[in-house]
Computed example of a mutant assay.
Amino acid sequence: MIAIDLIGIGTGNPDHLTGAAVRAMNAADLILLPRKGDAKADLIDLRRGICAAVLTGATRVVEFDLPVRDGREDYLGAVRDWHDAIAGAWAAAITAHLPGGGRCALLVWGDPSLYDSSLRIVDRLRDSDMDIELRVVPGITAIQALTAAHTIPLNNLADPVLITTGRRLREGGWPDGVDTVVAMLDSGCAFERLDPAGLHIWWGAYLGMAQEALVEGSLAVAGPRIAALRADLRARHSWIMDIYLIRKDIHVG
């Protein structure tokens, strides 16, 4: 039996770990850390730092190379194939380092339930007949970190919120029926495709980290500032994690 813990670790700051996350990490026999290439070396360094900060026992930490996603036009097909490859990498590492079974933990940015595919990858392991017991330890999401950094509520009073991706916002424009949109996984400033009239944006990058950057204002004014700053930060750090909230008007209450 392999017990797998998917542990939400927030946005990279060890202070974002819950008590449950710390206990789960220390209870694991093995923690797997993915290497994503030299351009994203800071990401594994953050995970290494989290392990160094909280591990107190004999938990082994093992690194493995994360497969690279195919950049072909068929986005969903490429992602499915990528997940298959990641499941294979997980299975190989678990088999090599826990041949007799045990508890394996994976550290997931934000929360495993929100725009993360770790749960889908575990399903692939189950489909391959691995005997798995799964536990999810929730974490602070990038959405929570963003609204906290800007000291704003997520929603207007009694109003819904749509959480989507930059790709969907770019392709579909402003969605009907909502005044507040949160965009994640936006690699290309999809907000530039929106009519900025009456829209306000709250943007954040590297939330909770030493290099945190925040911009807030009307989309017409703040949008170009964000695009320029984002490009500069990505060039400086070779990677960027950012998120933004856009709201129609600003209601009181």
Rank of each mutant, 00 (worst) to 15 (best):
R236W: 01
L146R: 04
N156Q: 14
L119F: 12
V54P: 02
R168W: 12
L146M: 12
G102I: 09
R124Y: 10
L229Q: 05
V79K: 15
D131N: 13
G223V: 02
S118K: 02
D45M: 00
D38V: 02
R234Q: 04
A21E: 04
L214Y: 04
A3Y: 15
D111H: 15
T18K: 10
I50G: 02
I243N: 04
R69P: 00
D123N: 14
D111W: 14
I132K: 13
L76P: 00
S218H: 10
I163K: 05
L162D: 07
D195Y: 09
R72F: 01
G102A: 13
H16S: 05
H83G: 05
I132R: 10
P175F: 08
A85N: 10
C189Q: 13
Q211K: 13
D42N: 03
L154S: 15
D159L: 14
V182E: 03
R103D: 14
L32M: 03
A149K: 07
I50A: 00
A92P: 11
L219K: 05
G223P: 04
G100W: 12
D29A: 03
L98D: 11
G100A: 15
A228H: 10
V182K: 03
Q211Y: 02
A87T: 08
R23A: 07
A58V: 11
V68P: 05
A24S: 14
P153L: 06
W202Q: 12
V61P: 05
R80W: 08
G12D: 01
I121Y: 05
L43H: 02
I163H: 11
